[in-house]
Simulated assay, not measured.
Amino acid sequence: MLNSNLLRKLDMQDLMVFVAVYEQSSVTEVSEALCVSQSTVSYCLKKLRTSFEDELFINTRSGMRPTNKASAMYSHIVKILQAINTCHSGIQTFDPTQNEITFNICAPEYFELLIFPKLIKRFIGSHFSIVVNITKFHKDIPVDELMDGRFDLVICFGPNFHRSVKGLRSQVLLEDELVCVVDKNADLPDQTLSLEAFAACQHVFPTPWTSDTNMVDGWLARQGCSRQIVARANSYVAALNMIPGTDFVLTLPRRVQALTCDEDRFSHRGAPEGLPNFTLDMMWSEKPSQDNANLWLREQIVKVCAEDGLL
Rank of each mutant, 00 (worst) to 15 (best):
F103M: 06
N294V: 14
R254G: 03
H268Y: 10
D14H: 14
R222E: 15
P206G: 07
H162M: 10
D144I: 04
V30A: 11
F137R: 12
P159C: 06
S25A: 11
P244H: 01
N68A: 14
G167H: 07
T86N: 12
D247C: 09
G218W: 01
S4P: 01
N214T: 04
S39G: 06
N3H: 11
W296I: 09
I77E: 05
Q13F: 08
Q13C: 03
S267V: 12
F111E: 04
Q223V: 03
I155T: 02
Q290G: 10
A239R: 02
N99P: 01
K121C: 13
R163F: 05
L195V: 08
Q92V: 12
V249Q: 01
T210I: 12
L280S: 03
C180P: 01
A72C: 05
F123A: 08
C87P: 00
K121T: 11
V172C: 13
S31V: 04
S4W: 09
L114S: 00
D190I: 09
Q290H: 12
Q82E: 15
G63N: 08
L15W: 07
S289Y: 05
H76T: 14
T246E: 02
A231K: 10
F157D: 01
L48Q: 02
D291A: 15
K118L: 04
K287N: 13
E307Q: 13
C225P: 00
V302E: 10
A20P: 03
S129A: 13
N99K: 12
E23M: 10
R269W: 08
T102F: 04
R163V: 09
E109D: 13
L240N: 04
I101Q: 08
W296A: 05
L45Q: 12
E263A: 13
I58C: 03
I84V: 15
E286I: 08
L48G: 06
C156F: 03
R255W: 02
I77Y: 03
D247H: 11
L178C: 00
P108C: 06
T97H: 15
C44V: 09
L250H: 05
S4M: 07
F111P: 06
E286T: 10
M283N: 04
G125S: 14
N294K: 14
I124N: 09
L119K: 06
L280A: 10
R227G: 05
V19P: 03
N68H: 12
E145S: 15
M282L: 15
N160S: 11
I124S: 15
M215S: 04
F278W: 08
H203R: 02
C106Y: 00
P272Y: 01
G224L: 02
S126M: 12
V182K: 02
G309R: 07
S285M: 10
H88F: 11
T192F: 00
P117R: 07
L168Y: 02
T102H: 10
D14G: 09
Y74F: 15
N234M: 05
S194C: 05
N59T: 04
Q257L: 00
D144K: 12
Q24K: 13
L280Y: 07
L146P: 04
P142Q: 09
R150E: 11
G158W: 06
P288E: 00
S164Q: 14
D264L: 11
G274A: 06
S129L: 02
R232G: 02
I77R: 05
